[in-house]
Amino acid sequence: MMVWLLIIGAAILILILQAELKRGATRHERFERDFKADFENIKNIGHHEIAEPLASSMNEALHYEYMEKVNSEFRNKFPRMSQSQASLYWREIQRYLLMASIFKSMEMFNPKVDELWHTMLNHPDEYQQFCKDFAGHEIFHYPSPEPVYKPFERTFFDLCYVQLFSIDNSSLSVWGPFFKEGIGQEYFNEFINKNLSYLKNKYMHQQANPETSRVFESFVSKIKNSKIEDVADWKNLYSYNNDASYAYLFFAQTDDWNYQVHCKHIFGDDIPLPHSHHSHHEGLSGHHGDTGHGGGHFGSDSSCSSCSSCSSCSSS
């Protein structure tokens, strides 16, 4: 009797395993179909003109087979995630890695974008080859044991992001409100007043290749050559192609600290914190400003799941 019970139990277990394998294969096939159908959309990261050389290099370096494999693994971690949601995270990890290839250090402010990065890192040979083909060097991932409040680094992230990429509702849904810690006046003044050599030494990635160096130079030139009369029509300029850089450059040159009232439809509807205009040097020197938690929340998917100024990872 006992033998028969064991045989029956083993048969049931085999049937369960076979059913699970079949479901897994069916799910993987669906993920493959979804990814293939949305691949061209995924590769369009919505960049501004100054980022075009690096966006093109990214397109050439990120191969379909690598991305499809990572995409299936990523969606398996989040079974309820649609491909359209996964595609949005693909857009943002590509934007993030583009910034990380330019600048010495770039903080990560979204847990699911970071999880997609981790999934890419699960294939070290392919990840390293991608980095080599794209940036000429590996883009290293540095985790922290727990999320740390980094308002000054978040402001720098925002400044770089709006100069390089379009901002839309999808951007806000991933990163939360932009410039809620301040417009980054000190950063702006430094880029205006310091020479290119100084700025390269302080901000540009030490392993930047010639193409990346030229993009950094274009980034600096865009800020240095901005004139308030040229960006005063920022509302119409934004409505044309979701380019929020004009709005930033306008308000960085005025004394109007109510920029979020004027730009909440662009940067997100939030109120600047009382400490939002502290010098960025306070936050960059040993992270003296990185204590405690504060600020508003922007949905369950905003950075660190709660605060858009919290970072648990960074690049270098």
Score class of each variant (00 low, 15 high):
Ala86Val: 02
Ala51Gln: 10
Phe152Glu: 15
Asn236Met: 12
Asp270Ile: 07
Arg33Thr: 13
Ile45Cys: 15
Phe178Val: 05
Ser303His: 03
Ser285Met: 12
Cys313Tyr: 08
Trp234Arg: 06
Leu88Asn: 01
Tyr259Asn: 11
Asn41Lys: 15
Glu52Tyr: 11
Ala252Asp: 02
Tyr89Thr: 05
Asn236Pro: 03
Asn169Asp: 15
Phe109His: 12
Phe35Thr: 04
Phe267His: 07
Pro274Gly: 05
Ser308Leu: 01
His262Asp: 09
Ile93Met: 11
Ser218Val: 00
Glu217Tyr: 00
Arg214Thr: 12
Tyr240Pro: 00
Glu73Met: 13
Ala135Pro: 02
Gln94Lys: 15
Ala25Val: 06
Asn44Ser: 15
Leu15Ala: 15
Gln206Ser: 14
Leu196Pro: 03
Leu17Thr: 06
Gly24Glu: 15
Arg30Gln: 14
Leu5Trp: 01
Ser171Asn: 05
Ser105Pro: 01
Ser276Trp: 11
Ile228Asn: 08
Gly286His: 11
Asn241Ile: 07
Glu92Leu: 08
Gly136Glu: 09
Arg95Cys: 08
Gly184Ile: 01
Ala11Leu: 14
His275Pro: 00
Tyr96Ser: 12
Ser213His: 06
Leu164Arg: 01
Arg23Trp: 13
Glu115Leu: 11
Phe74Val: 08
Phe130Arg: 01
Val162Cys: 03
Ala37Ser: 13
Tyr259Leu: 12
Ser197Asp: 15
Phe251Ser: 04
Tyr127Ala: 01
Met67Glu: 13
Leu62Trp: 07
Asp255Thr: 04
Gln129Tyr: 01
Ile223Gly: 05
Trp117His: 15
Pro272Phe: 00
His297Val: 12
Ser303Asn: 05
His275Gly: 00
Ile139Gln: 08
Glu20Gly: 03
Glu73Phe: 07
Ser276Phe: 05
Leu172Gly: 03
Thr291Phe: 10
Val162His: 00
Tyr96Gln: 13
Tyr187Asn: 08
Ala135Gly: 11
Arg75His: 05
Glu138Trp: 05
Ile8Asp: 13
Phe152Asp: 14
Gln128Leu: 05
Thr119Pro: 09
Asp256Glu: 06
Ala208Thr: 09
Tyr248Asn: 02
Leu13Gly: 09
His277Cys: 01
His293Ala: 01
Asn71Pro: 02
Gln128Cys: 04
Gln260Trp: 07
Ser84Ala: 11
Lys200Phe: 06
Leu97Gly: 05
His275Val: 06
His123Ile: 10
Leu159Met: 14
Asn59Arg: 08
